[in-house]
Amino acid sequence: MSKVTLPTKGPLLSGKGWTVFFVALIVVCAVAPMLNLLVPRESMFYMSDYAVALVGKIMCYAICALAMDLIWGYTGILSLGHGMFFALGGYMMGMYLMRQIGRDGNYKSDLPDFMVFLDWKELPWHWTFSGSFVMTLVMIVAVPGIIAFVFGFFAFRSRIKGVYFSIITQAMTFAAMLLFFRNETGFGGNNGFTDFKRILDIPIATQSMRMTLFVMTGLTLLGFFLFSKWLIGSKFGRVLQAIRDAETRVMFSGYNPLPYKLTIWVISAIMCGVAGALYVPQVGIINPGEMSAANSIE
């Protein structure tokens, strides 16, 4: 009987790939901060605050692109609703930033200005943990992850796929957008959250804080890139690609596609949630428009 030789697992990145990775790391952690913080403004090499915010925003979208590549490119699941997960992460961070305003708002109240305007007397229950930065980080991961798990479990267990799955995700996102537009939900209505003052009691508009957010976004993007490469190169990733190419054959080979599809679906949702949380303090606003189906398609 001939011996079956399984393919060996290759390196995470090639030599050239690691070179590009470390160059990107140096640019994010050293070159960009130097060009923004140390180079004189009149110099042609100066990186403006606008450029910092713009590149930071692009890197947030790049994290979403990685998430979409995992579920669509490697698993064959076309989602038109990941804009919702992006916005949920943004809203979790936005709630914390609104609490950080404190009495510096227009109405000098402990409540956010829009709640005072709507004659709210106390914070709604879902704002309970918004005053803690640590709990906010937990919610940024937990809220998109839990919603993705519940939706994905019932959808994948029912073997909904293809265009039908895509339409359902689009409908889910549109329904969430309409819900967040309502003032009584406590998410600021169509105006959303804005006028952020500080994060961790540090003014958010300072040059150093903007660069800190820029570096954190870049490191998160590079970290998710390495994680995605490792995941796709593992046995788990090979099963995902097999599901993409021939899900029925995977089932006949003894694999249940449900846990694989559900896991990558939740991971991609969490990645988008983290991207949204990094996006909000850099652009200074979050509103239900981020949940629009057009954003998910883009």
Rank of each mutant, 00 (worst) to 15 (best):
Q207F: 03
Y107I: 05
K3L: 15
P124Y: 13
M139V: 00
S109V: 06
A32T: 05
E122G: 08
L35C: 08
L137K: 00
K108Y: 09
I58L: 15
L221C: 04
L78S: 10
A62S: 15
L200T: 06
F196T: 01
V28E: 00
V143H: 11
I146H: 05
Y279S: 04
K229H: 08
L240R: 06
T217F: 11
L78P: 01
Y164P: 00
G10Q: 13
G254P: 04
M93P: 08
D69A: 00
I26T: 14
V283L: 07
P288Q: 10
V39I: 14
F86I: 12
G254K: 08
Q282Y: 02
V141G: 06
L278Q: 05
Y50G: 04
V27E: 03
G233S: 09
M93V: 11
F151T: 08
A275F: 00
Q170R: 05
I202R: 09
N295V: 15
D69N: 10
F156K: 09
R238A: 09
T5V: 12
Y91M: 05
M44L: 13
N256C: 05
T173Q: 14
E247P: 04
R41N: 07
T248C: 03
D104Y: 14
Q241E: 12
A155W: 01
F151D: 03
L80S: 01
S166N: 06
V116A: 03
T173D: 08
F227P: 03
L258C: 09
V55D: 02
D201S: 12
T5G: 02
D119L: 08
N191W: 12
F174M: 11
Y164E: 05
S109Y: 08
A51F: 15
L262H: 08
V215H: 11
I146Q: 08
T185I: 15
P259T: 14
A205S: 11
P40H: 14
G83I: 11
V52W: 04
K197W: 09
I146P: 04
W18S: 03
K197R: 12
A242T: 13
L200M: 14
M209Y: 11
D49F: 06
C64M: 15
M139I: 00
L12P: 02
R198N: 13
V283Q: 10
R244G: 00
S234G: 04
